[in-house]
């Protein structure tokens, strides 16, 4: 009984997180088109609440854009054409995946370059530490010094 009520409570508590921004009146009758619309919406940035895709945003403009995406799909556009339609109006900024071009080379290539740089540093450091060969025997001078210290210690303690 306890378990059941606990499970029920947890399910109820999780309910708000399943809430969708997509409202019932927006959803297309054709499930295939609707699925494509959802996929496209997930790659489009909401220009009001930036860093959120329009699929999960409750902003007015996001809703308008969702409707627009569906309208273009119904009109027979391909996914790429729909993306281009929105991009032409809001710029590259609405694409959650920025295109690879001159302005974004730094963005796309920096991680790889930093990784290469880091790996290079690690290799150089490891190599140089291995090159510094560790002597496994004391030199004659060292031996003599140790002997002197030991005899001095012995004399003090005895």
């Amino acid at each position: 009984m306890k378990w059941k009520s606990l499970a029920a409570t947890m399910m109820l508590a999780a309910l708000p997180f399943t809430a969708q921004a997509v409202e019932p009146d927006e959803i297309l009758d054709d499930p295939a088109l609707e699925a494509r619309a959802r996929e496209i919406s997930k790659d489009l940035r909401c220009v009001v609440c930036q860093n959120q895709d329009i699929d999960s945003s409750n902003a007015g403009v996001a809703r308008d854009l969702r409707l627009l995406v569906r309208e273009r799909l119904v009109a027979g556009d391909t996914d790429a054409e729909v993306m281009e339609f929105v991009r032409a109006r809001y710029g590259d900024y609405v694409l959650l995946k920025p295109p690879f071009k001159l302005e974004t080379y730094a963005l796309w290539l920096a991680p790889a370059l930093l990784l290469l740089f880091g790996a290079g540093t690690v290799i150089v450091v490891l190599r140089s530490s291995r090159a510094r060969s560790v002597a496994d025997k004391l030199s004659d001078d060292d031996e003599r010094m140790v002997a002197e210290i030991l005899t001095a210690e012995n004399e003090v303690s005895s």
Partner: peptide
């Protein structure tokens, strides 16, 4: 009324 011209102008609000 529909906000469509707003989209054409690329407004965010």
């Amino acid at each position: 009324l529909s906000g469509r011209a707003g989209i054409e102008w690329g407004i965010s609000g």
